[in-house]
Amino acid sequence: MIFLFTVILCIILAAMYIRYFPAGNVKCAKTLSHPIDSIVIVDVRDYNQSYNDPIQGAINIPFAYMKRRYSDISHKNIHIIASDYLEKNMSIRFLRKRGFKIIGYTLTDCKCQ
């Protein structure tokens, strides 16, 4: 019984870690510090959010479609545009597993410097 409880607890903690624990070594930035031609801006917000507030030059791939469309992203440095921390964390972890280098992110409601 204790073994089953431990397994279930580990599964729940792993799921919470993937979703809510901040992805490390990625800084929030309102403005891009790298030249625009050396990075790819990936907008992981839903289509209806990105349609109302478009980002010039960004590739719009909502996180729900990331698994089938991540091959559309070129292997340059990536800057993520997300609407909340959940989208940001999940997108960064997903793209890092596939060998992409994430250099920064911007949250649409963020007040970072």
Rank of each mutant, 00 (worst) to 15 (best):
M1T: 07
I2K: 11
F3E: 15
F3H: 10
F3I: 13
F3W: 11
F3P: 06
L4V: 11
F5V: 15
F5C: 12
F5K: 15
T6S: 10
I8V: 15
I8W: 10
I8R: 12
L9T: 12
L9P: 00
I11E: 09
I11T: 11
L13I: 12
L13E: 10
A14E: 11
A14I: 12
M16L: 15
Y17S: 12
I18W: 14
R19H: 08
Y20N: 13
A23V: 14
G24L: 14
N25T: 04
V26H: 05
V26E: 09
C28E: 14
A29C: 11
A29M: 15
A29R: 14
A29H: 06
K30L: 10
K30N: 09
L32W: 09
L32T: 07
S33P: 00
P35I: 00
P35D: 07
P35F: 00
I36T: 10
D37F: 01
D37R: 08
D37E: 12
D37Q: 09
D37N: 13
S38W: 00
I39N: 02
V40Q: 13
V40D: 10
I41Q: 04
V42Q: 08
V42D: 09
V44C: 07
V44R: 05
V44T: 06
V44G: 06
R45M: 08
D46R: 14
D46L: 08
S50W: 12
Y51K: 13
N52C: 03
D53E: 15
P54F: 12
Q56W: 04
Q56H: 12
G57A: 11
G57S: 13
G57K: 06
A58L: 02
N60E: 04
N60Y: 01
I61C: 02
P62V: 07
P62D: 07
F63T: 05
A64H: 03
A64I: 10
A64P: 00
Y65G: 00
M66V: 01
M66L: 15
M66T: 02
M66F: 05
K67L: 01
K67T: 03
R68M: 01
R68G: 01
R69Q: 05
R69L: 07
Y70V: 01
Y70N: 02
S71H: 05
D72E: 11
S74P: 10
H75C: 01
N77G: 03
H79I: 03
H79C: 03
I80P: 08
A82I: 03
A82E: 01
A82R: 01
S83D: 15
S83L: 05
L86S: 13
E87K: 06
K88E: 03
I92C: 02
L95H: 08
K97Y: 08
G99W: 08
G99E: 05
G99I: 09
F100W: 09
K101Y: 01
K101P: 00
K101A: 05
I103W: 09
I103V: 15
Y105M: 03
T106G: 00
L107G: 15
L107F: 06
L107H: 08
K111Q: 10
